[in-house]
Write a protein that binds this DNA or RNA. Sequence first.
DNA 1: TCAAAGACTTAGAACTAGCCCG
DNA 2: CGGGCTAGTTCTAAGTCTTTGA
Length: 742
Amino acid sequence: MSGDQIDGGSRFNDSHKHKDKYKEKEHKHKDHKKDKEREKSKHGNSNHKDPSDKKHRDNEKEKMKHKDGSTDKYKDKHKEKKMKSLDGKVKKENGFASPLQVKSEPEDGFYHSPKNEKSLKRERDDDNDSEFKPKKIKTENDKKAKKRKQDEDIKPKKTKNKREVTDGKKKAKKEPEEKWKWWEEERYTDGSKWKFLEHKGPVFAPPYEPLPSNVKFYYDGKHMKLSPEAEEVATFFAKMLDHEYTTKDIFRKNFFKDWRKEMTAEEKAKLTDLKKCNFTEMSEYFKAQSEARKAMTKDEKLKIKAENERLLQEYGFCIMDNHRERIANFRIEPPGLFRGRGDHPKMGMLKRRIRPKDIIINCSKDSKHPEPPPGTKWKEVRHDNKVTWLVSWTENIQGSIKYIMLNPSSRIKGEKDWQKYETARRLKKCVDRIRTQYHEDWKSKEMRIRQRAVALYFIDKLALRAGNEKEEGETADTVGCCSLRVEHIKLYPENDGQEYVVEFDFLGKDSIRYYNKVPVEKRVFKNLQLFMENKEPDDDLFDRLNTSVLNKHLQELMDGLTAKVFRTYNASITLQQQLKQLTSADENLPAKILSYNRANRAVAILCNHQRAPPKTFEKSMQNLQTKIDAKRDQLSDAKRELKSAKADAKVRRDEKSKKTVETKKKAVQRIEEQLMKLEVQATDREENKQIALGTSKLNYLDPRISVAWCKKWGIPVEKIYNKTQREKFAWAIDMADEDFEF
DNA sequence: TCAAAGACTTAGAACTAGCCCG
DNA sequence: CGGGCTAGTTCTAAGTCTTTGA
């Protein structure tokens, strides 16, 4: 069944975003929710339990209990290996802060000291479904927490990091060998995310610098000096003048409204029409600035770089449980104009500048908490170790909370990521059962069950997202599975020689269009017809279903199962299958990598990961073609030379001419290889025109599958993962061997 | 019980560094 | 040696799912 996953259909034939189509209806479907409510109460009392439900649940529970005892063929092997690696080496704590290393190995073994016995280590492999349930960790007491305090005086090891940056000549140096292998340690089981956390707080956006007086703003043709507050907001608009956004009505309206709020009374009285505002001098000024920046001397650039590096070293890391970990986004988002995606009702609104009094700091009690800038105060300093964030604030557009969190290479993110794939692998074990069940449920006499079953089928087969309800008018009108409306699908009893075809056409996350025509089982088709009966186009297709109902059901089918697990599972299993299918042993390295990319691409198509074709696409394609042609010419020249050299050697029969033949032969080979490489590159790029591989690679594909594939075919992982990716997937690179099976 | 708040993952676009070519 | 072009990096919006609290 999972073979279905890569049918892909005709999805990419069309321009990938089509906003206009959806424009007119704007808020036609306003009263969905009410409709849903009504519907619900109408059918509300028909819920009788499917007895099989409970049975399944119990089965699953039973399985879970045994998870640790189960074995499989890889387990033992891995164990063996693990021991080796453990015995072999005394682990250092993370390489970057040497004082830390000393201090962080308290005799009392506070954190997980490397000296602890292996019993303390995490199971290295998880093949055995060892589900990623955190294993026991001893709970610590304050005496030890105190100990942590010493960490305060850890200073980043400047020299080393500096070196890496400044003489950043390629590959110069190996990373320090002792990278912390958090995956070999215990996890917390008490719901805490850390015991010690210390950081320097956020870096605020630089303050506004007023424009030089020769850069003027004109209203209705006349020069007008703006107050600094109004001027700042005006510059936000000026900076975007070249962007399509600024031509959109909603954008302009929102912008103008918010801009006026920043104006003085006089300004407000005077500036009443955005059309009469002339920002061109400002815009020119900024363009000139960015030119100037590009034209800076090497020295100046170096200086900036050094300053950035300093900032990174100071603010870009935190100490979490004895380790210096990289922070993902330590800079506060600067003020500007909100750019939503798609037809966003709030585009153009002013995104406020964040000040210290908006900021909540999270760190441990026994840490030295960051000081707010002089003369300011934090909103709050709290000590919540049940969460992973270091800093948070509330954003003014949607009123949602934003966070500063750790880098994907950190333990806290890595563990979660690993766990995600383990959950997906557990789904693999019971997916057949679940599929059988939802096939059954298509026949249920309860509408809500049939809807649930059809929705789940879509989520499984087409890798659709769950589709939470969204607040009307707050965001672009996009949908996922549970929020599909009647207008988003069309039914064809017969289409292009196939029976029971469903055509999907809707805007999903980020207003990316999902277009697909898929044949479905008759029963699904009939159900869909029924769901659509007597409904308006803007009514919900699944009016008796929402994500929380669906996830509650999934939870009963398997512990930890939610809708998104299907995406992860289907993506990873597809990669694995495709790799198996597409890789052939006799191909050379570039061809193998092409195969990898094709497998990756199959997943990206399944998950509908699209991108706007790069602006320079056509040109770069052409460039490549030119290169290929040149290489072809070069090849035929080389072949000709080889031929004549051969002829020559035949006549002369001496060592020297023989040697020439060899050289020429080599040259031909080399050029052939280069040509091949270019051609492969061209194919790859063409096929990738509107498909984004990165998202699936980063978020959906169990990295151990890729690592195993690399090991199996002797491909350097660097060909598949760049440096950042290798850091994120360090756990997988370290632990997967060539026969890892997802 | 359910809506809102909160936390965290996933996403494409914008930006940038540094490589390669003429 | 500069300029054009990617590949890699950064940015932050937009999802999912969980938790909270009325």
